[in-house]
Lab assay of single mutants.
Amino acid sequence: TEKEKEVKRLAKERGLSPDQVRELAQRAGFSPDQAKQIADEFA
């Protein structure tokens, strides 16, 4: 999704850790499970 792409782009730009990616995703409105899946891509 657009929102997911945006979260991943920000995460890459900022060099976020997987935990930070998960927090960012949840703040963007993703469920905890979705946020974990997104964060796992950065693990």
Rank of each mutant, 00 (worst) to 15 (best):
A25Y: 00
T1I: 14
K5R: 13
K3T: 10
Q26P: 02
D33A: 14
A43S: 11
K3R: 13
K5F: 09
A43Q: 11
L24S: 03
Q37K: 15
Q37G: 07
L16Q: 02
E4D: 05
Q34T: 07
R27I: 13
S31G: 10
I38G: 01
R14Q: 15
E4R: 15
L16T: 00
K3N: 08
Q37D: 07
A39G: 05
R27S: 14
R22K: 13
K8W: 03
L16K: 00
D19A: 11
A39Q: 03
K8N: 05
P18R: 10
K36R: 13
A28H: 14
E6V: 08
D33Y: 03
P18E: 08
E4L: 15
K3P: 07
F42W: 12
P32G: 05
R22C: 09
E41T: 06
L16A: 04
A35N: 01
L24C: 07
Q20L: 06
E2S: 12
R22W: 11
K3L: 15
V7D: 04
R14H: 15
V21C: 10
A43H: 09
Q37V: 12
Q34R: 14
D40Y: 07
A43I: 12
Q26E: 15
Q20C: 12
K8A: 04
R27A: 15
E23V: 06
A28E: 12
R9E: 08
Q37A: 14
V21Y: 01
L16F: 07
F30P: 00
G29R: 00
T1Q: 13
E4W: 15
V21F: 03
V7N: 04
I38C: 03
K5P: 02
D40I: 11
D40A: 10
A35K: 00
Q34W: 06
E13R: 05
K8T: 06
E4F: 10
L10W: 03
F30A: 02
K8G: 04
Q37L: 11
L10C: 15
E41W: 07
A39S: 08
E6R: 08
R22E: 14
V21P: 00
G29V: 00
A25H: 01
E41L: 06
E6H: 10
S31M: 06
K36N: 12
L24M: 09
E13K: 07
F42E: 03
E41R: 07
F30T: 01
I38M: 07
V7L: 15
A43K: 10
A28G: 04
K3H: 07
E23G: 05
L10V: 15
L24R: 02
K8E: 05
E4S: 14
D19M: 09
A28C: 13
K36E: 10
L24H: 04
K5G: 08
R14M: 15
F30C: 03
F42L: 12
E13S: 07
G15T: 04
E23H: 07
D40S: 08
F30L: 07
S31R: 05
S31D: 11
A11H: 01
Q37R: 15
K5V: 09
E23A: 08
Q20S: 05
G15E: 06
A25V: 03
Q26M: 14
Q20H: 06
A25P: 01
K5Y: 08
E2Y: 07
A35G: 02
F42T: 05
R22S: 08
A28D: 04
K8Q: 05
D40H: 12
E2G: 10
V7R: 02
L10S: 09
K8H: 09
V21M: 05
Q34V: 13
R27K: 14
P32F: 05
Q26S: 10
V21N: 01
E13W: 02
Q26C: 11
R22N: 12
D40Q: 10
S31C: 05
D19L: 07
S31F: 04
A25M: 04
A35V: 04
F30W: 04
L16E: 01
E23M: 06
E2R: 08
E4H: 08
L10F: 04
F30Y: 05
G15C: 08
R9T: 04
F42D: 02
Q20D: 09
E23W: 03
G29F: 00
A25S: 03
P32K: 07
E2L: 13
P32L: 05
I38F: 04
D33M: 08
K12P: 04
L16S: 02
S31H: 06
F42A: 05
E2M: 13
G15R: 08
K36G: 09
Q26T: 13
F30D: 01
D19P: 08
E2I: 11
A28M: 15
A11K: 00
F30K: 01
P18Q: 11
K36A: 13
